[in-house]
Design a protein around this nucleic acid. Sequence first.
DNA 1: ACGATTTGACCGAG
DNA 2: CTCGGTCAAATCGT
Length: 336
Amino acid sequence: MQAQSRLAFAASGGSGGGNSDISFGGAASPRAGGEEHEAVVRELTRGHELTARLRAEALRALRGQGQAEATATFILGEVSRAFTVCLSIMASASPSSPRPGTPLLPTRAAREDNVPRKRLLTASPYDDGYQWRKYGQKKINNTNFPRSYYRCSYYRERRCPAQKHVQQRDGSDVPALHVVVYTHEHTCLQGAPAELPDATNSGGAASPDFFPAGGETQSSLRRRCAAQVVGGARPQFVDHRAAMEERERQVLVSSLARVLQGRQCYDVDPDDVDSRGAVSAVHAPAATPVAASSSSGLPAGPVDAADEALDVMDYDVTDALFWGPFGTDSNSDTLF
DNA sequence: ACGATTTGACCGAG
DNA sequence: CTCGGTCAAATCGT
């Protein structure tokens, strides 16, 4: 599913630039395309709803049955996610929706801070592989749910500027969907390997930037850094897209590892999982520990939130699906 | 004791 | 003045 959408959108011009030229099913006219589009969306929505019901029933039936429950949770979560991603693609390709990269009528347009922003619609707003610290919550006018404000946990010691705002979407989505707006790009994973305090050796040479700030002890900083390192080898995230793919892969591996927990004969190595999530090899020894554990256990993917009435510009769906790079400047199609 | 979260106050933009 | 975003003291959880 993801692989297909990836290919489809990769062929359409890729990320960021917002030059996608998406068409589905060779619709001949806007009218026919619109009807076809509606029918597909209707069926996908129905499938999604039925999956949610099936999931609820299955979990009720399998409650307390350990591995079976975990397996059902994972598989049905993946099915649900597939529907969500399809719906997201259809929303982005809607004949009536603005094309990616096309400036929307600015609701609070022309924000002048020039800060790159990006919006996602996802059932799991907290499973993006980063560590966040909440710093505020606000009731927003004319909405049912409060908006929560998060900052990268490394805001202080590494001066990572990344932030995100999470707000549950009004309505009766099952599962509940959240609009997540990311502002700024993480800097805390870039060019870090040699500079981070060593997580295992006591005398690791750390740059002053990575020493604890605000009274945090060195040991607690090390613990936190170690918690984010996967398998002891910190990837040097230079290419943003590769970094995001890597993170998504790790989240998937984490899910698989949970499911396979207890089956001593199976272990999953992240290197054996390709970008589509396919496990290309299964072998001992131990599975690599994975950061970004999910509290929900349902690795639902992020999708485009093109129909939201929030003051965020639309952006290329490829980025929405695969956590691609932020827009970086005025050329970005992800700005407010 | 310490880090994370909550929540009312505050601030700047419109 | 209203509103969204942030701050920071109080509170909570481990």
